[in-house]
């Protein structure tokens, strides 16, 4: 029996040796690259924040360093489901509140859509919209990422829910649907409506606990 064990080990020594070598190499890679990967993930959101809260002209002048961005999570309990909204509160260097950016997810036509919604201080008007992640139909549904469509949301008031229409009749809360992608445009609008309704009462005052970021 002992001999059998030994021979098994003897046969597998190469596999074990390779496993050790590769394991060490991967550990090295992990130590070296994981901070970069983590930074990539947060940067993806952080880079967009000035654009979403400030006017375009101001955003180009104001570098990210001039803003103080605090992150927090707003937790909402509704119909037995707990929802989490990561919210970034943006302050100017002089301490005045510039606005908030909320990250929200919802079901789109093909898969989940993840959006960043920019709101002014207190969340009265929408100041910007950005689609972080989507897998909608190329050529149709994925037109939601285009700036011309997203920019319709800017300056919309947040007290009336937005609706998607085929042709505008002049109501202030109308969003032009994308032809051939009614569901995608409606999904995004739905996510915006729900998010604002959920988090607006909780935006102010900003809790003073977290000073990092």
């Amino acid at each position: 029996m002992n001999f059998f064990k030994n021979s098994n080990l003897a046969q597998a020594w190469l596999v074990l040796l390779l496993a050790t070598v590769f394991g060490t190499a991967l550990a090295g890679i992990q130590v070296k690259l994981s901070p970069v990967i983590e930074a990539n993930k947060t940067r993806e959101t952080m880079e967009k924040i000035p654009d979403l809260v400030l006017d375009t002209s101001m955003a180009t002048q104001t570098a990210t360093q001039d803003l103080i961005i605090q992150s927090r999570v707003i937790e909402i309990e509704k119909n037995g489901i707990t929802k989490f909204y990561p919210v970034y509160d943006v302050q100017q260097k002089n301490g005045s509140l510039a606005g908030h950016v909320a990250k929200a997810r919802g079901q789109g036509y093909a898969d989940k859509i993840e959006v960043l919604i920019g709101l002014d201080a207190g969340g009265n008007t929408i100041t910007g919209l950005f689609i972080l992640d989507q897998k909608e139909t190329p050529g149709l549904g994925n037109k939601i990422v285009e700036k011309t469509w997203r920019d319709q949301f800017i300056n919309k008031l947040s007290d009336t829910p937005l609706i998607v229409v085929k042709s505008k009749t002049g109501q202030p809360n109308e969003i032009d649907g994308i032809s051939g992608a009614t569901i995608s445009s409606r999904s995004v609008t739905g996510i915006v409506n729900t998010t604002i309704a959920d988090i607006r009462p909780r935006l102010l005052p900003i809790p003073k606990t977290e000073e990092t970021e």
């Binding site: 139909t137 739905g190 409506n193 309704a197």
Partner: peptide
């Protein structure tokens, strides 16, 4: 495509406004 989001909307309506 889209059948699932349709079913989800019917069974789990997000907000009353929707």
């Amino acid at each position: 495509t889209g059948v699932d989001s349709g079913i989800r909307d019917l069974l789990l309506p997000e907000t009353p406004s929707q």
